[in-house]
Every structure is written in C-alpha cells, then in structure tokens.
Design a protein around this nucleic acid. Structure first.
Length: 480
RNA sequence: CGGGGCGUGGCGCAGACUGGUAGCGCACCGCGUUUGGGACGCGGGGGUCGUGGGUUCAAAUCCCUCCGCCCCGACCA
C-alpha cells in the first residue's frame, strides 16, 4: 500500500512541517528567487480566508483600506534612528532603474511606517482630522537569513494598519483594541488558535516604537510563534516625519501613531497548531472547502443513481456549506479519502449504492483521522447535521490546542527549573531581571521572554533570577 | 555569514569510486479490467545530466569556476 511520505512529527518536526506544505499542495519553493515561495492555489485560498476574516474586523472597527508605494526613498528609513538600526540588515535596495543609477536608491519596504508617515504629515492638520485609521494589504520584503515556507520568507504578504491619534491614551486604546477585537478574536474564533496576549519586552519590541504587544501561540513542538503584533509608536514617528496637528486650544502638537500587522505566517501557525501525521488539518471556519463528497460506484447504473442521490443530498448546501463533489473518474474512493485527509478538508461525505439503498451517507471528520472518525448518518437532516459537526470540529480543534498549551506551560519558582521547562514548553514565572539578563538566558538556553501576559495574577512573587519581589509574570519560551 | 548536504524526465532517486553516450519507482498518455481506506495488466511519450571552462578519441562520471536550493546555527513577522 503506497503512502505519501509525511515524516512523523516525533521523528523530525521541521521535516514534518515541510512535508505538509509540500504534500498538501500549499506552496512551491520559488527556486529561482532566494527565500521566496509560490503560494499555490490551496495555500493562497487559506490566505484569502484569513484576509476576509481580518478585513471584515478591521473595517467593522472603523478602518479603511488604502495602498502606499512598494519603494521607499532610502533617506526615509534613516529618519528614525532605532528604526533604521532594526531594519537595515534586512532591506533590499533598488539602485538602478531606467538604465541608469538612481540619485537616491529606493528600499523595498520591509514595513511602511516611514513612507506612510511622510504622507500622514501632509494629511493631518487639525484635531478634527483625527483619528486617522488606515490599513493596507501589501507585500513586504525582508532579506532573512533563514527562510521557511510561510513562517519566514524574504517576501511575504500581510496587512499593516497605521493610525494617528490626538492623545497617547487614544493610541494606546487603539493598539489594545486591535490586539483583542481584531487579532485575538480572529485567531481564536476563526483559526481555532489559542493565543497569549501581552506586552513585548524592550529587547523584542518593534524598532522605533514605544511599546509592542503581541499574540503568542504554541506550536506542537512547544515553540512559540509570534502570530501578530500591535505597536504603540508613541510620538517617535510623528517627530521623525513631522506629523503634527492643531488641538482645540490652537496649539500645535505631535500626534501619536500606532501600527499593527499580521502576515502569511498565520498559515504556518494554522499548519503547526492543528495538523497531524496524516496531513494538513484546516479549521472549518477557515476552510475554503468544508465538505468534500466522494461518490462511490462500480458501473454506469450505479453511477447515475449515486450522482443523483448526491445531487439531492447537496441541494440545499449552497450558502450554508462550502463544498465540492469529487467525481473524478478512475480514482478509487480509497485514494480520494487519503488525498482529502492529506489536504485537511474538515468533513468528508461518502455516498455509494448501499447509502442510496438505505438513505444514509458515511460522514468522516478530519479531526479524528482514519476510520475512527467515520459514521453512518441518515440523509434526512444531513445539512443541519453537517453544520453542527463543523461547529463541533472547530471547537474541538480549539480545545485541543488550548489543552496542549496548558499541558505544556509550567509555572516555575526557581531559576534552575527554567532550562527544563523551555525544553518542554512555556515557562511562566515572576521576573524582575534586566535586558542583559534576558540576553544571557537567550544565549544559554535559546529561550526568550515571549511576552508579558496582560493577564497577571495580581499578587506579588519572587523573581526567579534576582530574587526581587515583583508582581510581574512573564512567559519564557523558544521561538520561531 | 559559518557548518553540512544536494543539483540527472513533473516528483523521488540510481548511475560517478573504476569515463564508452542514461536507467528505476511514482506521476503522465492510450486501451481494457477495476472502484465502500492509497487498484491491476498491456502498450506508450518525455531528460541541453544546474552553469561555464578544461582533460580525453570519448565526460552525468575526472579537474577548475560560477550559480542555485535544502538542512543545522547566529538575526527576524
């Protein structure tokens, strides 16, 4: 019995991931362009679903979309000292065009704070212009040393929101609102990926920003994936680009800006959180195809009666279920079962002569792979049954991921427990150490403070390193 | 950028040490039999052996150059 080769997770997690990407037909290596990938239709469809989920929320919270240039004058990047320091190593430049060397090279945007800042300076005059709430869907480029499909590629797709506010409090409110109501809500509800929301440490915050918040998810190899970030940029970029406004008292003030983004990395998160050794698992709310129907027949007579039954059964699915009928000839049903399992379709409906006879169908759920997840269901009421099943699967995936994270999160009291904890998951502990202490831990244990969770116990404890009394707990982990 | 591996039909590989003009599996095409967990038989098509140079009567094979990709590490959404 030939089997597609997916390396088991236990054996080699990193290879498992690449096998899933490859075998589920998500992406192709762009062999001719270093560090880039081709999003194949299956992978791109996931991105489109992500875009829809986010775009709806972004607009529902009062933002509008716009688009800024891909190329940024190099000098723009220089205007914010910390920003250029953070991004310089990974920017690509265009130095020649139209057959001649450019007087000033352009950089290909690694992010758009600077060019957007330039325009915001023109657009913002009065407090009445604020808040300015704009989002853009774009590609960006960061010349990464070590690319991996979806998780880290030289060119990637994302959305970046850029807003301007009159007060620090407004900017902070925006930053947190995005974190909770847009990113958190989307990831947990649509992607079924539980996240820990919190503040980044100084070392890990956005280059040039005031403070950064992020959403961290745990992958099945216990490593943390930063799945989204929301930055309060303070007045740093307003000063660098002269974004000012006249307030009600007729005094000119620097504005407060924010930026926030999530990228195609989310596809990697989806894969690594939910998939198994049989292949990809796509959560129903995100799935471009939620239900695949596999008709079974031996001859033309059976074929027509089976396809007729399929027609009847699926008659009221449009608008309620996203589905497709796999009537490719000359492929055995068994082959199709395995293929759709590999591709992560949440539910499979099998319909053969026996089912026509008995007014049943066989329903297989992807969250329970193989025959175990299969049961016989009457055709009557099937649509409602499937809708419920999809909801159930969505919930099961979320619960499973949450339990996994909780089972692998260790609350520790002593520093000597840290090494072992980050080996097997997240370590949660009181922390009052310095950036230098973090640096040392990163060198020694390859672990970093992923986030300072917004949810804190509210009671004081002892820092695992310094022994100081503190109320702040942090999450240590190894990161992607 | 350091360490390792690899470039041969679409994919995965063998052939290389010992030079003689390219082969296997899967996929693909045709016909027939099949079809409830990855079907089978027969027939067929498809390869500038990553690039450039060198050695040789002769190079996938030996030598040199360059390019690319993957993996592992330091940097990152």
């Amino acid at each position: 019995m030939p089997k597609e080769t997916i390396t088991p997770r236990q054996q080699d997690y990193s290879q498992w991931y690449l096998d899933i990407v490859q075998n589920a037909d998500m992406a192709d290596y762009a062999e001719v362009v270093r560090g880039c990938i081709v999003f194949k239709p299956t992978g791109y469809a996931i991105w489109e679903a992500i875009q829809r989920g986010l775009d709806d929320r972004i607009k529902a919270t009062g933002h509008v979309n716009a688009y800024f240039p891909l190329l940024i004058p190099r000098s723009f990047l220089m205007k914010e000292a910390e920003h250029i320091e953070g991004f310089a190593p990974e920017v690509a430049e265009v130095t020649r065009a139209g057959g001649e060397d450019l007087a000033e090279p352009y950089v290909i945007r690694p992010t758009s704070e600077t060019i957007i800042g330039h325009f915001y300076a023109k657009w913002v005059r009065s407090w009445r212009d604020l808040p300015l709430l704009i989002n853009q869907w774009a590609n960006v480029m960061r010349w990464e040393m070590r690319p991996r499909p979806f998780l880290r590629t030289a060119e990637f797709l994302w959305q970046e929101g850029h807003t301007v506010h009159a007060t620090e409090a407004d900017a902070e409110r925006e930053t947190l609102m995005i974190l909770h109501d847009v990113y958190g809500d989307f990831m947990e509800r649509d992607m079924a990926v539980p996240v820990i929301k919190g503040l980044k440490t100084e070392r890990e915050k956005f280059a040039g920003g005031l403070r950064s918040y992020s959403l961290e998810a745990m992958m099945q190899d216990y490593r943390a994936l930063q799945s989204g970030t929301s930055h309060n940029l303070g007045q740093n970029f307003a000063r660098a680009f002269n974004i000012t406004f006249t307030d009600q008292q007729n005094t000119i003030q620097y504005a407060w800006t924010t930026s926030w983004g999530v990228s195609t990395r989310l596809i990697g998160a989806m894969i690594m959180v939910h998939s198994d050794d049989e292949g990809l698992v796509v959560p129903p709310r995100l799935a471009p195809v939620q239900v695949v129907v596999v008709p079974i027949y031996k001859n033309d007579t059976e074929r027509s009666s089976v396809l007729q039954a399929v027609e009847q059964v699926t008659a009221d699915w449009a608008g309620r279920l996203r589905f497709k009928v796999d009537d490719r000839p000359n492929l055995t049903p068994g082959f199709k079962y395995n293929e759709w399992e590999l591709k992560g379709i949440p539910v499979r409906v099998e319909l053969g002569p026996r089912d026509v006879q008995q007014q049943n169908v066989a329903v297989a759920r992807r969250d329970i792979p193989g025959r175990e997840g299969k049961q016989i269901v009457p055709q009557a009421g099937l649509t409602a049954y499937l809708e419920t099943l999809l909801t159930t699967i969505q919930q099961v995936l979320y619960d499973r991921a949450l339990r996994f994270r909780e089972d692998h999160t260790y609350t520790i009291q002593r520093f000597d427990e840290l090494a072992d904890a980050v080996e097997r998951g997240f370590a949660r502990c009181y922390w009052a150490g310095s950036s230098e202490d973090e640096q040392r831990i990163q060198s020694d244990l390859k672990a970093t403070i992923r986030v300072i969770p917004l949810e804190q116990p509210g009671t004081a404890g002892t820092c695992i390193l310094t022994g100081k009394e503190t109320t702040q707990q942090v999450i240590f982990g190894r990161a992607y």
